[in-house]
Design a protein around this nucleic acid. Structure first.
Length: 522
DNA sequence: GTTAGGG
DNA sequence: CCCTAAC
């Protein structure tokens, strides 16, 4: 207990909540607000026509997407129509990159309502509802284990220091950096695995659902004999799955922006992959070339579309009700504090674990280049979740073992238990989000710096990719970050307020530790 | 299994 | 993030 601790936290997500629904334009139900945050995004992708359809731009597009949304503005109220231009380009540039930083946090306050709107359309139709709850003007708005939203007000000694004007810089667009495959350290295994010259990291997108987002092709100019020509895609915009955001009316606009930003980032960073539609039909075979798929054909309007889909691998308890399986979601809140989720609270992610609510819920597992596998915690049923409605209407299976496993097996030469990381495989880098930092700081403030297991249990109990060692390491880097000048800091900017709390908590607990030692010595 | 600290 | 000594 020390000054900085906030023992009594205030829940204030109730009465004055403002709901902002964001839906893709295809939705039948009209959302209160529609968003088009990618109106101007263009992605020029030069892909050899022989490249596999889904090989080509899974990552770059999302990377770009992610980068573009860095400057998320405000709602425009227009529908987010996706436009894709396909043009010919002689460049032989490999547009594909490696694994982008995958922001993979799963926040408790982001959850999925899973409202579905079955449609006949062969293309995207199912909408995903993202629920984001921001307490007060905080970015994170984490819930404590007592289920209350936390209001954070630093009340440390150096309270005179006002450092909350970080909103401007937090909008910084982090440039995409080409990185090596973590999963393939020291070897070009990945390149061998994938037939395309284009690198990719996802192997889980061959059997996704057609849902949520879609794109349209605005034009194409491809010569008849385009064997060796590249197809240039210019994606004007992507539609995003529905976002369901809950935020107090007293929250600031900046807070709203950040909240949306975080939700979108979460979606794009980890929750989605890109699917490709040709004439309304989903292209599943990643190994097909564009030529084979017809993308590089001359016919002008073959109906090429890119869709953003949820990852089909959702970690759910095997006992999950069917409604869960039908829900093309991957973020499910267990928080009772997340009001309005009564219809969906049956979606229990974890079979085991504590009954308490923890601030961050994670469902993904994350090793680069693989779609399955939990890191850390074991013994949970991991059921791949597939929505095959669009492309395989005859499939009535709610939970199916996707056929992608075939492909995956073809690509992964070793027999490994799907779900277990390759031995010696380095874990994917997962930068801590501000929200995660917030949760960490809060937990450390309460528990101290020497009880990382408790910190983990308290704040990251359901985030399986964050081990207590990770948290300890993160704290280490946070302390370091807080001590260096802002100019020297890299990555997603951590609000100064948080860093101040880090220093304060660190100082306090260091002092406590010293006292303890002194006592033990004497 | 956890903690702590260097790599 | 990884590795590992120390507990």
């Amino acid at each position: 207990m020390y000054q900085g601790q906030r023992e009594s936290l205030v829940a204030q997500v109730k009465p004055d909540e403002v709901e902002c629904k964001v839906k893709s334009a295809e939705s039948g139900t009209s959302p209160p607000v529609q968003v088009d945050f990618e109106d101007k995004m263009e992605i020029d992708m030069n892909i050899p026509a022989r490249a596999s359809p889904e090989n080509n731009n899974v990552k770059p597009s999302s990377s770009l997407f992610k980068n573009c949304i860095g400057g998320l503005g405000c709602f425009s109220g227009r529908s987010a129509e996706t436009k894709v231009e396909v043009t010919r380009d002689d460049d032989d540039e490999n547009a594909s990159g490696c694994s982008q930083d995958v922001q993979s946090y799963k926040q408790q306050h982001i959850s999925c309502n899973g409202v579905q709107k079955p449609r006949n359309s062969s293309s995207a139709s199912v909408l995903k509802h993202w629920r984001v709850t921001a307490a007060n003007s905080k970015v994170g708005g984490f819930f404590r284990t007592d289920g209350k939203a936390s209001t954070t007000k630093a009340t440390y000694n150096n309270s005179g220091k006002s450092s909350s004007n970080n909103q401007q810089k937090t909008q910084k667009v982090i440039p995409f950096k080409k990185r090596k495959f973590f999963a393939c350290d020291g070897a070009s295994v990945c390149d061998d695995l994938f037939t395309s010259p284009n690198k990719r990291t996802n192997d889980d997108n061959s059997c996704g659902s057609a849902s949520g987002t879609s794109s349209s092709v605005s034009g194409q100019h491809t010569p008849p004999n385009s064997r060796d020509c590249n197809v240039k895609f210019s994606i004007k915009s992507f539609k995003v799955p529905e976002l369901f955001i809950e935020i107090p009316a007293t929250a600031t606009v900046g807070s709203l922006k950040r909240t949306v930003m975080e939700a979108v980032t979460a979606i794009l960073g980890d929750g989605l992959h890109v699917g490709i539609l040709v004439q309304g039909k989903k292209v599943r075979d990643d190994n097909k070339t564009l030529l084979q798929t017809g993308i590089s054909q001359d016919d002008k309007h073959h109906g090429l579309g890119f869709i953003l889909e949820p990852r089909q691998h959702v970690q759910i308890a095997s006992s999950s009700p069917p409604s869960c399986a039908q829900t093309p979601s991957f973020l499910i809140s267990r928080s009772p504090a997340a009001g309005g989720l009564s219809r969906h609270t049956s979606l229990k992610l974890q079979a085991g674990g504590s009954s308490g609510v923890s601030p961050i819920v994670s469902t993904d597992m994350g090793f680069v280049g693989r779609s399955g596998g939990g890191s850390g915690d074991s013994g949970r049923a991991i059921v791949p979740l597939v929505d095959e409605r669009a492309s395989v209407p005859e499939s009535k299976a709610l939970v199916t073992v996707p056929s992608i496993r075939m492909e995956a097996m073809a690509m992964v030469p070793f027999h490994r238990k799907s779900g277990q990381p390759e031995l010696g495989q380095r874990r994917m880098r997962r930068p801590f989000s501000v929200s995660e930092v917030e949760a960490l700081v809060q937990a450390v403030e309460k528990l101290g710096t020497g009880r990382w297991r408790d910190v983990k249990l308290r704040a990251f109990d359901n985030v399986h990719h964050r081990t207590y060692v990770d948290l300890k390491d993160k704290w280490k880097t946070l302390v370091h970050t807080a001590r260096i000048s802002p100019q020297q800091r890299r990555g997603e900017p951590v609000p100064q307020e948080l860093l101040d709390r880090v220093l304060a908590a660190h100082a306090y607990w260091s002092q406590q530790q010293a006292k303890q030692q002194a006592k033990a010595t004497s």
